[in-house]
Every structure is written in structure tokens, then in C-alpha cells.
Design a binder for these strands. Structure first.
Lengths: 343, 343
DNA sequence: CTGTTAGCGCGTTCAA
DNA sequence: TTGAACGCGCTAACAG
């Protein structure tokens, strides 16, 4: 199977190579390989054998030239770390068989100029659709409506209500976190979150408030907002625990903050989860699985978001309405040892 | 600028649309837009105005059909988390202006079948080259030599010496770690690493040994290999510290292990870095910057790896030899508070 | 059943 | 200086 030459030596084989080897015209070869019915069985077999022998791979770009579709999607992101975009990419790939559609991934790095360049590049390559992934859940400026392909905004919604946006439901996430703590018997719940300039921080905070209201509880101390770091999680939790020694649970705005909270609790000689339960957001594996104990967290279900985005794009290509407005993806509670004692 | 319709309404404009609006032939329009000299200045201006007005974007796939190049690279990975592949992708993008070349990212998820599907998909889209990114530094099976485009293996080398592989120099990384600790005055150095089935673990261990030899030192206790988790870092460090209370430094096989080591040291009432210095590998930001104190680490310079890979691919397209064998990328020491006291 | 013709969007000859 | 004609690789119409 493997040739002896280096990569790049072997010339790309075309349909006409196959046709010549099989002794038929290119049209017949095309029909044979595409499973059209109007081909003699023997001829089809000859063509298929020839294609196999030459390891022929049809040029999808040439096909796309005719069909008006390239089987290609652009994923335009500014998520430097890939934390959000990778699950979304995988969800998009899953929405179809592997290889049926390929994904261009471009990182704009929060730079509008660079984003425009990438957008041009993607359109010039005639992507069938575009998925725009932000690095935070705050609205971002729309790409505009004069784009000739369907566009779906994921994670960060578009600021234009005419666009379709798919985002995690952070309010529900906050509510679910509190409901879980209450179900575990916690009554003295505190809240430490990240940068208050982020919608994610505020939305989760709103959900926390709703959850407390529903349980007839009041937050212990004030919600603490500063930044998304472990250090802040430690410092803020330390203050809260010292001022309110009766705290029996801390809702944290992210898994990193939660890790800081775990440290603060342990520094004070108290035990998680027996004395104080801790819950985070994001369900970011390296964070939640490395901690001691492992961290209960709210998973935003990003794969589902990516899968839904891809499905919407391709449904739109098939003539369906793309739809508009901001659609919320329900989160999922993942329980680990930081809220429920484990063996 | 923005149209009033929804996305997808506006038809894709072609060169002939531009030519018609400008009142010239497509050939002339093509020359005008591509900066060919044989066009009257006034004609060129008319064509450019028409292109602008219609916001014409040339179809690079049609161009590619002629040129034999698509300005497209395939990135075939099995790095589920995106830890390695994202920096490599960014390096590859940087190797050219943003948008000059676009990158298809495919995740094979350690599955050979899926990898073959993606490979076919990429070749059918006529990528100009292929970058294969593994999730560990152990050799992986070659894609073969009958691929019609240049292939570069990154992070995980190919098991075929005829292929070109670009990988981090883990032996050097281990050596540099020890050299740094020795330079900080440490003499009683222990070693905790990850899964001994990983070349990365063993290679770094070899480097640690070389560094110790060069300094005339012996490892305190045995190298501890198990897995890449924080938990293991804690447990192994605890054993070492209890059996060898004079340990003044721990070299850890990853940042996660190092975080576990930090916990173990603190649990014993000892201070990092004053009593015990700790150093990790990977320089993975959320890990190194969240810890207390921040973690000194060895950065494998993945962006440079990605950039180099992209450059090799495109140099090969321009006729240069692709080259072969395994090439090592030198790592970089990043000093933080876990080895040198900080204000 | 098969082959010929046409054309997808573009760049590059070559005549005019 | 411009435009008509050709071909990149492929598929869809038709004619044979």
C-alpha cells in the first residue's frame, strides 16, 4: 500500500486518470463512483477497481463548484485557551459523520481587524456556514446581515436580536447550584464570583438569588465579585469564613474560584464537605478532578451547544428558517466530593 | 453597509457580476483585481469600484482549481483537551498573515478509523499540507508515504524515520529544571513524575538524571512514577517528604503533579520555596498561575513548534526538501514563586 | 448503458 | 489595452 517515495512525490490523481485506467469516459466514471443506477455492473466494478488502485480521492472543491456547497463550516473564535471552542468543535463534528463536513478554525484573538481578515478568508473559501464563538457570555457586535451564509453565535450572543445566538443558561446554573446545596441540607450559603464586568458572573449571581428566595433563605454576607482567579477565591472565602463562621456552603463563580475556596476552608481547619460545601461552575476537568476533594460543578453542556449550532446551520442550508434571538442551553449538575461525602 | 435581509439572502457575487457592472469582460476584471499591469488605470478603477460595491470576494476554491493550491492546511489531532493543539494552531496561523492560509482542525479522538475518515476528508479538500498533532510524545504510527502533500508530525513523532517530526526536547527540559534548582542552592532533590508508559515522563526523568550528574548530586529517594494527577503528586510527595525530611526541592513531571506536591509540602507545615522548592513542566497557565505560590515551570514552546511546522510545510510546497527525522524544540524556563521567593 | 457537451468561477494564454 | 477561448476537476443534461 505505502509507496516508496517521500510525501508529495505522488501526484494527485483525478477522475480522468481513473477513467483512462478503466477505459471509460470521465462521465461514466463519475456515475459509477457516485452510485448512479445507469451503469453496467461490470463497468462499475472496473471503475471502482481503478479508483481503488490509484487511491483516487475526488476533489471536493471541484464538486463544490458545481453543487454550490463545500461541506465546510467556519468556526470563528476568540477563545484563546480553547476551553470553550474545543467542545463546541467536537459537538459540531458529531452533528454529522466524521469527515462529512470539515471545520475551519480561526482564532481572532479579540482583535476586530484580525476577525475581519479571517471572515474574508472563510467567505472566500465558500464555507457553507459560520459559527462564531466568544470567550465570554457578554453580547458581542454582530458580523452584520450581508453575509451570504447562515451565521450562528455561540457562547457569546450577538448584540443584534435578528441574529441567532445559542448561549449557556447561567441564571439556571446559579439556581441549580443553590438547589443542590439546599437539598444537601445547607442553610448558610455564601457567594464568591469573578469579574463583575462579565455577564456570566452577574447571571449566575442572579440565579443564586433566585434559588435562595425559593428556599426562603438569605445569602450570608454580600456577594463578592472581583476576578476569576484562584487567589481571589482564596482571599474572598477567607474573609467570609472569618466574618461568618457559621457558613456551611460557598457557591463559587468558577471552578478556579472554587479551588481557592477549598484552600481557604482547609486553611481554617474546617473540612469539605462536612463543615462547608463548595460548588463551582464550568466543570472544567483539570480543575474539578485535581482538587481535594473533587469539585461538584455545573457543566454548561458546551458539546450540545456546538452540536445544536451545527444542526441549525445545516438546517438553514436545507431551506429551514435559521431563526433568531437568544436561545439558552440548560446546564447540568455534576456532583462530586465537595458537596457530598464520598468513600 | 449592512443589508436589511437575513443572512443567506444575499447571493454570492462572482467575478462575472463585477465585470458586467463595470462593463468589461471577466478576463479584464480578473487582471484589474489581481494587479496585473496590462490594464488602463481608468478601467482598473471602474472594476475596483464595482467589486467594492458588490463586496466581491473571489472564490479561492475556484482559484485553487487553477493554481493547484488552496491556501489551506489540515491539522489532524487527537489532543482532546486542546492543550497542545491550540498553541500549535496559533503558531501555524502566525507563520503567515491572518487569513492568508486557513486551517482545518479535525479531532480524531485517538480513533484510527476516525483518523482515516478525517484524512480522506482533508485530502479531498485538497489541503496543501498536513500537520499531525499527537496528545503525548510517544511515537505514533506513520500516515504513510503515499500522501500527495507534505506531512509534519508535531508533539508526537512518527515511528517512521523517513517522516519529519518536530517534538519538545523533554530531556533538555528535565536537565534545565535541575540546573535551575542547583543554581538556587538546592542539593537534596527528589523526583515525582507521571505515567511511566509515557515517553514524556521517562525523557524528563533522564534529563533530571543528567542534571544531577553534572552537578555531582544524587537523587533523594527513587523517582516516583504513576500517573499525571494532582492526587498522585500529593501522595508521592508526602511519602518522599516523610521518608526524607531533608528534601529541599521536588522536580515534578507536570504542573498538575507539582500542584499536588505544593499541597503536600504545605500539609507538613513547610514553606515553599524557603524550605522546599517545587518545579513543574508544561507551563500550563491555569495551573501555574492559580497555585500558591505561583509555579515555576518548563515551557515546551509549543507556539514555536506550530510555527516551525507550518513553515516547513509551505517551504516544501515551494520546492524545498521537507526533511526527515525527529527534530527537538528547546524548552524555556519560566521562573515563578515556587522556586524563588517573590515579594 | 455509454459518451459527448456544457458549465461551475477563475486565471492565463493568445489574437485582435 | 482588451476580450475570446481554453482548462482546472467534476457533475448534469442530453444524445447515441
Amino acid at each position: 500500500m505505502a509507496g516508496t517515495g517521500r510525501n508529495g512525490d505522488t501526484k494527485v490523481v483525478t477522475l480522468s486518470d481513473v477513467a483512462r485506467l478503466a477505459g471509460v469516459s470521465v462521465a461514466t466514471a463519475s456515475k459509477a463512483l457516485n452510485g448512479r443506477s445507469q451503469v453496467a455492473a461490470r463497468t462499475r466494478a472496473r471503475v471502482e477497481a481503478a479508483a481503488e488502485q490509484l487511491s483516487f480521492v475526488p476533489n471536493r472543491m471541484a464538486q463544490g463548484l458545481l453543487a454550490g456547497r463545500t461541506g465546510t463550516v467556519g468556526l470563528l473564535t476568540s477563545d484563546l485557551q480553547g476551553r470553550f471552542v474545543i467542545p463546541i468543535l467536537m459537538g459540531a463534528e458529531d452533528a454529522f459523520g466524521a469527515g462529512r463536513v470539515s471545520v475551519f478554525l480561526c482564532d481572532a484573538r479579540e482583535d476586530t481587524i484580525r476577525e475581519q481578515h479571517h471572515l474574508q478568508a472563510l467567505l472566500s473559501r465558500r464555507v457553507d456556514g459560520l459559527i462564531v464563538v466568544g470567550s465570554r457570555t457578554d453580547p458581542r457586535s454582530t458580523l452584520g446581515h450581508d453575509i451570504p451564509v447562515p451565521v450562528v453565535y455561540v457562547y457569546a450572543p450577538s448584540d443584534d436580536a435578528g441574529d441567532l445566538s445559542l448561549v449557556p443558561d447561567n441564571v439556571a446554573a446559579g439556581r441549580i447550584a443553590v438547589e443542590h446545596l439546599v437539598a444537601c441540607g445547607r442553610r448558610k450559603i455564601a457567594h464568591v464570583s469573578g469579574d463583575p464586568g462579565y455577564a456570566a458572573a452577574l447571571d449566575r449571581g442572579v440565579g443564586v438569588g433566585e434559588g435562595l428566595d425559593a428556599a426562603g433563605l438569605k445569602l450570608v454576607g454580600d456577594s463578592m465579585y472581583a476576578d476569576w482567579s484562584e487567589r481571589w477565591g482564596r482571599d474572598a472565602s477567607a474573609v467570609l469564613l472569618d466574618r461568618h463562621p457559621d457558613i456551611d456552603a460557598i457557591v463559587c463563580g468558577s471552578d478556579q474560584i472554587a479551588r481557592g475556596a477549598l484552600d481557604a476552608v482547609r486553611d481554617r481547619g474546617r473540612v469539605v464537605p462536612d463543615d462547608v460545601a463548595v460548588i463551582g461552575f464550568d466543570n472544567w476537568e483539570p480543575m474539578v478532578e485535581g482538587s481535594r476533594p473533587e469539585l461538584t460543578s455545573i457543566d454548561p453542556n458546551l458539546e450540545l451547544l456546538g452540536r445544536a449550532a451545527a444542526q441549525r446551520v445545516f438546517a438553514a442550508l436545507d431551506g429551514d428558517e435559521l431563526g433568531d434571538g437568544v436561545h439558552l442551553q440548560a446546564p447540568r449538575l455534576v456532583i462530586r466530593g465537595s458537596t457530598v461525602p464520598r468513600s
